[in-house]
Design a binder for these strands. Structure first.
Lengths: 194, 194
DNA sequence: TTACAAACCAAGCAAGCGCTAGGTAATAAA
DNA sequence: TTTATTACCTAGCGCTTGCTTGGTTTGTAA
């Protein structure tokens, strides 16, 4: 029988799965690889999850929830439009390149691997995250930091940031905060005032 | 035996494969699906390609070559920095959302599915394409259209544009040219002068 | 010490995968 | 009309995949 949810063991498995899904992709990660990495036999995985997809759902769910927490925390006590925008950019990049990045990355690149049913459930979390961004962008538009249409801008901005998964390695010279500053500058044509 | 290259039949197969790879992803496209879609039996595929990966390589190679052709053609007789930048943006979006888009899309999202060997060959084409973009961005920086560092800007811009694969559908109100204009505006904070 | 659920193992099944071998049909040049 | 080449089919092999079943160990609380 599948366990309700959220046991400690289950969380451990999800964390390890996130790492493998990110490294190898969901399709190329076999249940045997997951089992070896977690130190159990492949059949025992199905005591915790009813099937392989449920593992992916758990990973993505965790990734999205963390992202929402981070952006809320980052922008919570900030009022000024420019600082809010920068905080959101930096927060987003942190969830992609800081610690525990795997789950958020997987939630972005493996979205297509989800079944229609799982998507319809997780889409709420994604909408919530995008809604927060939408507000920040609109505020930045009002403050004349940005130009264009809010909805498209959000897609352009998040696209750019998400794409950093493909090329950015924090070890190589530039760190995540510097990257955030560079992006903010190229986006707004201004420097952030501290 | 595998045929040297570039027979007509092979081209047909590559085009059909591009469509499936885009729709289903490389991993989830089986040789049997490819065979059915092309109207032959699965074994016959290996008369044209030595293995499944060679099909992917052919698709990506074609996609990259077309992209290079398009951007060269688009920016060929244009001198002004703003118009060159817009032409590159529009050209890139055309290869992603216009006709024969599949191959270019696959070349972007299935890069990770390539073997190290195949990558080392195709990387030349990718470098060539990115080099062209680099020049256009530098020229735009000189003309004060953009702000920031050229290398990072190229990654930000192409990231945004590539990300449109995930959400842009030309049928839904906005067409590709309008999208290009919107992006140009949000990026440069200016409108293009015709 | 018993009781019971949670966590795991051993063994393997059915299905699907990429790919091969050996033969046949179509096309066209000699 | 022969010969060669290209294109395809038939049949299936060997392997890996996700997942199941039935039994065993471990932890915990009464």
């Amino acid at each position: 029988m599948t366990i309700p949810k959220q046991t400690n063991r289950r969380k451990e498995l999800v964390t390890i799965a996130a790492g493998l899904f990110k490294q190898e992709s969901f399709d190329r990660t076999t249940v045997r690889m997951l089992a070896t990495a977690t130190g159990i036999k492949s059949g025992s995985l199905f005591h915790h999850f009813k099937d392989k997809e449920e593992i992916l759902v758990a990973v993505i769910e965790g990734g999205l929830e963390t992202s929402i927490e981070v952006i809320n925390k980052q922008t919570k006590n900030i009022k000024l439009a420019d600082q809010r925008l920068f905080a959101a950019i930096y927060g987003h990049l942190m969830t992609l390149h800081g610690e525990n990045k795997d789950a958020h990355i997987v939630s972005i690149i493996e979205w297509k691997s989800l079944s229609t049913l799982s998507k319809s459930h997780l889409i709420q979390l994604r909408d919530e995250y995008e809604g927060i961004w939408q507000g920040i962008i609109e505020q930045a538009l009002d403050a004349k930091l940005l130009e264009g249409e809010a909805h498209l801008l959000r897609l352009f901005v998040l696209g750019s940031l998400n794409w950093t998964i493909q090329w950015f390695k924090p070890e190589q010279g530039l760190d995540t905060e510097q990257l955030a500053h560079n992006f903010y500058h190229s986006l707004t044509h201004q420097f952030i005032t501290k």
